Simulated assay, not measured.
Amino acid sequence: MNATPTPSRRAVLGGTAAALATLTLTTTPATAKSGTPEATWPTEYPLPDGWLPEGIAIGGKPYAYQGSRANGGVYRTDLRTGEGSVLYAGGTGQAAVGLKLDHDGLLYVAGNTGVARVIDSRTGGLLTTHRLADPTGHFINDVTLLGDRAWFTDSRAAALYAVPRGRSDAGIRTLPLTGDWVQLPDVNNANGIVGTPDGRGLIVVKSTPGELYNVDVETGYAKKITLVGAADVVNGDGLYRIGRTLYVVQNRLNLISVWSLDRTATTATLTRTITDPRFDVPTTAARYGDRLYLVNARFTSPQLPETTFTAVAVSI
């Protein structure tokens, strides 16, 4: 997620517009394939006013979990109806940005100021708070599940953090990023994160200047992924992968760029882009059926208690 000021939309498009000129900008209708259960489900639903959403997670059941930057709360929505309620109320000084839901019902939450939390998605109970780094100078931003660990990014430090999955708080590991990785000062670096198709590594998006990296989980060596079809993924935020297809949410550009990864996940070729008039600075995406659901963070709008927020679905 990236709530820090960035160049105007016209400026940030400069690096990618020329490369995209030969591609058709595809607006994907927010509909589901006829005959699927979700065909009649809503494709847009409200979140509480002033929620300040960033992350979204969906598991095997049709429920979406959306985090709040305002107080660290988690809001659960029934995708079948669009109706929801607060699952976890959060608290003063908390934030909930990236989220991932495990098969056992545990919800892993990137907590911004150096912490990660584990919440029971069935009861809303806070199970564990992990201290990953000092509160200042760190931004624990997003999370993915790989092997027996939940992996968290830090936008303000060149490191990933590996937390054991489950209820244990033992054995937290800090993995410094090396290789091609160069940490830039005073901007958000590492952001969205997913596993590689072979399950042996991690793909991390660097929001500024807009790069993808393949990270070795044993050594921390980060190899820059070669992009074909566009110069960058500037403002890259949440990542979602299906097989060798990688979806990159580029928040302030109001689009999702769709990439085909090669066998080693060291080259990514742009295949299309997804836009929708309902996008209002979407940050992250989660999948249910043939849809991606995204939360609109509305970073370019006033972030006030009365500001309205929504989540939207697009077909993939």
Results as ranks from 00 to 15, higher is better:
6 T>S: 14
7 P>Y: 08
10 R>C: 13
10 R>W: 15
12 V>R: 14
15 G>N: 06
16 T>G: 11
16 T>M: 13
16 T>L: 12
23 L>R: 13
23 L>N: 05
24 T>Y: 06
25 L>Q: 14
28 T>P: 05
32 A>F: 08
32 A>N: 07
34 S>A: 15
35 G>E: 13
36 T>N: 14
37 P>N: 11
37 P>Y: 12
46 P>W: 04
49 D>C: 03
49 D>L: 05
50 G>E: 07
56 I>K: 02
67 G>M: 03
73 G>L: 04
76 R>E: 11
80 R>N: 12
85 S>A: 15
87 L>V: 09
88 Y>E: 10
89 A>R: 14
91 G>E: 05
93 G>S: 01
93 G>L: 05
97 V>Y: 10
99 L>Q: 08
103 H>S: 15
109 V>A: 03
110 A>T: 01
110 A>V: 04
127 L>D: 00
130 H>I: 08
130 H>C: 07
131 R>M: 14
132 L>A: 06
142 D>A: 06
146 L>T: 07
151 W>P: 07
152 F>L: 12
155 S>E: 03
155 S>N: 02
159 A>D: 15
162 A>K: 09
162 A>I: 03
167 R>W: 08
170 A>M: 14
173 R>V: 15
177 L>E: 01
178 T>G: 05
181 W>F: 15
182 V>P: 02
182 V>E: 13
182 V>C: 04
187 V>M: 07
188 N>A: 10
191 N>V: 03
197 P>Q: 09
200 R>G: 09
200 R>P: 03
201 G>W: 00
201 G>A: 12
205 V>Y: 10
205 V>I: 13
211 E>R: 14
212 L>A: 10
214 N>F: 08
217 V>N: 11
218 E>P: 04
220 G>D: 04
228 V>Y: 15
231 A>T: 12
240 Y>M: 02
241 R>S: 07
242 I>L: 14
251 N>H: 01
255 L>D: 06
260 S>F: 00
264 T>M: 03
268 A>P: 04
283 T>W: 01
286 A>Y: 12
288 Y>R: 12
289 G>W: 08
290 D>L: 03
291 R>N: 00
302 P>G: 08
303 Q>Y: 08
304 L>T: 15
305 P>F: 00
306 E>T: 15
307 T>P: 03
311 A>E: 04
312 V>D: 05
314 V>P: 03
315 S>H: 06
316 I>P: 00
